[in-house]
Design a protein around this nucleic acid. Structure first.
Lengths: 149, 149
DNA sequence: GACATTTAGTTTGATGTTAAACTATATAGT
DNA sequence: ACTATATAGTTTAACATCAAACTAAATGTC
């Protein structure tokens, strides 16, 4: 290689993104109630938005993680009674996931707890600045997702 | 909370960042030789840039991970003989980390292997676009880092 | 100098992730 | 119908992360 990787702008860019993901995920999890984690919250969020009745694979694809990772996360949520998982009547290989009332409560409480954290960050970084950068991030995400498959 | 977290721009922003970190780290590790991982490569990169003689804590702070995480990563690198760790002569609590010749070779080989991947991504996203977004990311990183301590 | 506090690093236990092997069921081809 | 292939989900092994408890050494206080 002729150039140092530090001089590679894409490398620096992805490096910043990696550290931000780490630090922000950590900061948010620290204020979440009841040992809730980001992956767990994201699944609850997904079920709330879409109204449940999702298959594990659909959720895994939406989160862009492997099925194995989703098996793990759904297991935690189910053991905490925040979701309910039932066999799919039409397809013996598949399952259906729904959020429970306790799950809805935990979801709402988590959003509440996250409020001050987002307020602080949104104050430091107004929406206008985020809006400028978001299209690049979305494109990059799509490119990486396409390349993965 | 009055607003759905999905309507929160900061949430969407951090969500994209989280997924990009996941997908990009994964894509890069897949082409790295000899089971090299991103954290391991980043440490080798750091030692190469700074010329070694770093303490584990200095490296952990630079990577912005906990000391425990660094103990783990340095252990892997040391067992693979890519770094050498010696007690600090001046401070009995501390250690000094240096990259080995094998570590330098592994570092160079990894950068080579990463070339095509970065070429592809840099082609899709020219430096000009990255440069626009980088200041926001760097600021966000600093804010999160400051908030952490 | 003795004791308290701070600092560097390790360990532990829980969480998350991937890739790959595996099970069970569904679908397609002949 | 039979057989082969594809799909949904689980399991395993290896890696990473954090927080918190822990050890050992240095520093600060009195």
């Amino acid at each position: 290689m002729s150039e140092n990787s530090d001089q590679n702008l894409m490398f620096r860019f992805l490096n910043e993104i990696g550290i931000i993901a780490q630090l922000s995920g950590n900061a948010l999890e620290k204020v979440m109630p009841g040992g809730m984690t980001m992956p767990q919250f994201t699944v609850l969020n997904h079920l709330t938005r879409l109204g449940g009745n999702q298959t594990p694979l659909q959720i895994a694809n939406a989160m862009q993680v492997t099925k194995g990772a989703m098996t793990n996360t759904l297991g935690h949520l189910e053991r905490a009674d925040l979701i309910i998982v039932v066999p799919d009547a039409k397809d013996g290989r598949s399952k259906r996931v729904d959020i429970t009332d306790a799950g809805r409560r935990a979801h709402a409480m988590t959003i509440s707890a996250l409020g001050p954290e987002f307020a602080y960050l949104s104050d430091m970084f107004p929406d206008s600045r985020l809006k400028e950068a978001l299209p690049l991030l979305e494109e990059l995400r799509k490119v990486l997702d396409a390349r993965r498959n």
